[in-house]
Simulated scan of single mutants.
Amino acid sequence: MNTKYRHLFNEAFSVEKYKDLIQDINSEFDYEVTFRIGESPFFIRNELKQQLIEGCNQVIDFIKRDDFRSLTNRALELNRKVPNEDNHTTFLAIDFGICEEDGKIVPKLIEVQGFPSLFNFQYHLSKKFVSHYPFLSELTPFLNGLNHESYLKLVEEAICNNHPKENVILLEIEPEKQNTKIDFYYCHRDIGIPIVCVTELIQKGKQLFYKNDKGEEILVKRIYNRVIFDELDLRTDLKLNFDFSSDVDVEWAGHPNWFFRISKFILPYLKGKYFIETTLLSDIKEIPKDLENYVLKPLFSFSGSGVIFHVKKEDIEAVIEKDLYILQRKVNYKPIIQSPNGKVKAEVRILAVWKKDAPSPTLVTNLVRLSRGEMIGVKFNLDKDWVGGTVGMFEK
Rank of each mutant, 00 (worst) to 15 (best):
F121W: 04
E32L: 07
F260M: 05
S360Y: 13
E39M: 02
D213C: 00
H124S: 09
V198C: 13
S339M: 01
S117W: 01
P340G: 03
N87K: 13
L170R: 03
Q207G: 02
F184R: 12
N212M: 06
E286Y: 02
K204F: 03
G38K: 00
L154T: 14
Q328R: 14
F242G: 02
K211Q: 14
K206L: 01
F129C: 06
I173M: 08
I195C: 09
L152F: 13
G38N: 00
T199P: 10
V344E: 02
G304R: 10
A158H: 07
L125T: 03
T140R: 03
I182A: 14
F96A: 01
P164R: 08
R74V: 06
A318M: 01
E395R: 11
Y31F: 11
D183T: 04
S305M: 09
S246P: 10
D95F: 03
L370V: 07
N79S: 10
E216K: 07
G342D: 08
E16P: 13
V348A: 08
A158S: 15
L234P: 02
A75Q: 06
S27R: 05
G145R: 07
L8G: 13
E166A: 12
K214M: 08
L281E: 06
F42W: 09
F209G: 07
V106A: 08
S360N: 15
T199C: 04
V364H: 06
Y5V: 01
E32I: 13
K204P: 12
I22M: 13
Q178M: 05
L170G: 04
E314N: 11
V106S: 09
K204D: 15
L324I: 03
G392Y: 00
K127E: 15
F62H: 09
A352T: 09
I337Y: 10
I336H: 02
D102W: 02
S339W: 03
D67I: 02
P298Y: 12
L8C: 12
F91R: 06
A358K: 01
Y294D: 05
K204Y: 08
A352D: 06
V106L: 15
D237T: 05
N79K: 05
L232S: 05
Y294C: 08
I60K: 04
I218C: 08
F62S: 00
F302P: 11
E286M: 09
S246Q: 01
S14C: 11
E157H: 13
P359I: 01
Y224H: 12
F96Y: 12
T180V: 14
W386C: 14
I159D: 01
K221H: 10
I159E: 02
L118Q: 14
S263E: 07
C99S: 10
S245W: 05
